[in-house]
């Protein structure tokens, strides 16, 4: 289970909208499955269909999370026109088995947020609680 405050969920949605027409991405830090901090990142591969957290941002954010003794709770990105479900690309490029992959779909109104774990090419739904 992944628990995210309403404030952080709203920040993720706002970041996704700011990124349009491209996908937006970032990291949610947490402890014991509960989000503690929202880290928006630069999309180093800006496109309506792709994201890649820019390499200096990746190091900066992961180091900050390590220094705070928090975990990479979720890696988020937006799907601008498709549902909140991992694409083939999302699965092929999932190298963080301990993190949840949070997808925010702007294809619906209100936007749809869902979390998954992706390990060895297999997608598993992970319950997302927004409280």
């Amino acid at each position: 289970m992944v628990t995210i405050s309403r404030a952080i969920a709203d920040q993720i949605v706002a970041h996704a909208r700011e990124g349009l027409p491209d996908e937006a991405c970032g990291i949610v830090a947490g402890r014991d499955g509960t989000a503690t901090r929202f880290h928006p990142a630069v999309n180093g591969d800006p496109s309506p269909f792709r994201y890649s957290i820019e390499s200096r941002d990746l190091l900066r954010i992961v180091t900050a999370i390590d220094d705070a003794e928090e975990d990479v709770l979720a890696i988020y990105h937006s799907h601008t026109m498709s549902p909140a479900f991992p694409s083939r690309t999302d699965v092929d490029l999932a190298f963080w088995p301990d993190a949840a992959y949070l997808i925010v779909s702007l294809a619906s109104d209100p936007p749809d947020l869902k979390t998954f774990t992706i390990v060895d090419g297999r997608i598993a739904r992970r319950e997302l609680v927004i409280s």
Partner: peptide, 29 residues
């Protein structure tokens, strides 16, 4: 990021730090 420098030829100082981070990437297509 060594990709912005000398890649595998990048000099590593005594007592230095190397960090390996897989990409966080994907997308709708």
């Amino acid at each position: 990021d060594v990709r912005l420098g000398d890649g595998l030829s990048t000099a590593v100082p005594d007592g230095g730090t190397v960090i390996v981070l897989p990409a966080m990437a994907g997308g709708a297509a």
